[in-house]
Write a protein that binds this DNA or RNA. Sequence first.
DNA 1: CCGAAGCGCTACGGTTTCCGAAGCACATGA
DNA 2: TCATGTGCTTCGGAAACCGTAGCGCTTCGG
Lengths: 101, 101
Amino acid sequence: MRGSQTGRPIMALLDLLGRRWALRVIWELREGPLSFRQLQAGCEAISSSVLNDRLAELRAAGIVEAAPEGYRLTPEGEELLALYPGLDAWAQRWAERDRRG
Amino acid sequence: MRGSQTGRPIMALLDLLGRRWALRVIWELREGPLSFRQLQAGCEAISSSVLNDRLAELRAAGIVEAAPEGYRLTPEGEELLALYPGLDAWAQRWAERDRRG
DNA sequence: CCGAAGCGCTACGGTTTCCGAAGCACATGA
DNA sequence: TCATGTGCTTCGGAAACCGTAGCGCTTCGG
């Protein structure tokens, strides 16, 4: 995997999550399973080929898994999702800041 | 900014952080200011042109700022960094899992 | 049984992004 | 003056991504 040469696991993780749509796909799955096409619609303009690539990578990493209903987060994926409220709160403050100049 | 059309700030943030090296640059600045070339060396193979692009984006977002010693995280950047221990811990467990099969 | 519709996924050409190497303008120190 | 180090830029080629189309399959209504 890209970026894993250093032997430091977080480098590989930052690499995996630092690809287009990877963070977003996890976020879209926050409220339960979604089908491939629902996921594609949720991510506005993502190309189906790229979505397929990201899903394959996230599944290989054990973050996402296939389900009868489509795709869902694994327990490990849920652990990652637990970090998102912090991101969300930060983004809210960020928007406030910009609005006020 | 890309991905901000939805009006949901987190989308713009996920978009910003989901670019190559963006997450990594923040991580590299965790222990204090680094010069441009130190940052480049820390990120192994990053191209100087891309590093310059990421720094410009992160500065525009108020996450990173220029300092006499080079570049450092802003207070807002430090808030984002506060989420990294969770990522690091996850990555550690991830590596453990892989090692055991 | 047959067509329509929906599914996950793939193929492919064009565009954007990134890499790698070289080098510029400037500052510092010998 | 000359070497060295800095932040940063340029540019050609490679890789990633987008947009569209469509395949093979299943489901459902007629």
